[in-house]
Simulated scan of single mutants.
Amino acid sequence: MKDLSSFPIMARWPVKDPSVLQLYSYPTPNGVKASIMLEETGLPYEAHLVTLADSDVKSPEFLSLNPNNKIPAIIDPNGPDGQSIGLFESGAILLYLADKTGQFIGQTAGDKHRITQWLMFQMGGVGPMFGQLGYFHKFAGNQIEDPRPRERYINEAKRLLNVLNTQLADQDWIAGEYSIADMALAPWLNALEYYGTKDLVEWDSYSNLTAYLDRFMDRPAVQRGKLIPAQS
């Protein structure tokens, strides 16, 4: 039996089976990247609900696993060289799980690099820009009278959407085959509905993207993963 007692997070979120991978997350666009990947690969795991409240993400137990106080994070008791490993950052988790299973990362070294570049495109562009758009439209930022911040993120979101729409002109998936890049990108596209910004960015004008998101959301693993961890 694996011993995970060296991870302080266990005191707050106890495990049932320490031999399987442990996921600490919440069903946000970043959080579901990990749960969808786990559902796609079929790896056994336990999901622990970590809310976005400071009492959870800023608790000493969670900070011991992710000092940046953001979900998701994982502990794999069956890590490299048979040692347990804890990881945070959704992109790093996707890459780790892809390397661990040999799935959704392409067939060749060239494939891996092409997939990774689109993963980085999401991490450095789509996620931060869409998140700021949501902040300035739906959340506290919408109280700011100066229109420039909101306009900046609307325009940048449109630019990024156009890049993706062009990339999908003659293929079903962003890097040619279904991969971790899609698991990173599509949840953020889906978040435009939650933010109420589809009309602002003229979502319906990106026909390749609308079809792409439908394909992604129709996958059984995505349907399961988008609801994990379950909320009480």
Rank of each mutant, 00 (worst) to 15 (best):
R152A: 09
W118N: 08
F136D: 01
T166K: 06
M129K: 10
P14G: 09
V32L: 03
I180C: 08
V15K: 07
N190C: 14
L189V: 13
N78E: 14
L160F: 13
N190Q: 10
L94F: 04
D199P: 00
I154V: 15
R219V: 02
L87V: 11
K58N: 07
E177V: 03
E46Y: 05
K158N: 09
L164N: 01
K158L: 12
D99W: 10
S25R: 00
F121T: 07
T101A: 11
I74T: 04
L21Q: 04
P60Q: 07
N68W: 00
E193F: 13
L119P: 09
G82R: 10
G86C: 14
A11H: 12
W188N: 02
Q117A: 10
R114F: 11
L133N: 00
G134Y: 02
G127S: 15
L95R: 04
S179F: 08
L43E: 07
S5I: 12
W13E: 07
D99V: 09
A186C: 10
D214N: 14
N165G: 06
T197F: 04
I93K: 01
D56M: 03
R224Q: 08
S232K: 08
R215S: 06
H137F: 13
G196Y: 12
L97W: 01
F216W: 06
P128D: 04
G176N: 04
I144K: 12
L185Y: 10
D81F: 14
Q171R: 15
T166P: 02
I115K: 05
M129L: 10
S207L: 14
Q22I: 08
H113W: 14
L133T: 06
E193D: 15
D218Y: 09
L52F: 04
V20G: 04
L52R: 07
Q117F: 10
D81Y: 09
I75L: 14
K33C: 08
W13N: 05
P147Y: 10
A169H: 08
L43G: 05
M1K: 15
S6E: 12
R215C: 08
A11V: 07
P149H: 11
E89Y: 05
A181D: 11
K2G: 05
A47M: 00
T51F: 02
A53Q: 12
F88R: 06
P8A: 11
L94E: 01
V50M: 00
R150H: 14
G124M: 04
V222D: 03
I115R: 04
G79M: 12
A11S: 14
R219Y: 05
V20T: 13
R148T: 08
Y212T: 03
P147C: 13
S84I: 11
W188T: 02
Q103L: 12
G86M: 11
L65A: 05
V50C: 01
L63M: 13
Q132A: 08
L94I: 05
A98C: 06
A92R: 02
W118R: 13
M217H: 06
L168F: 15
T41V: 11
P29W: 09
L43P: 06
A109G: 07
S19K: 05
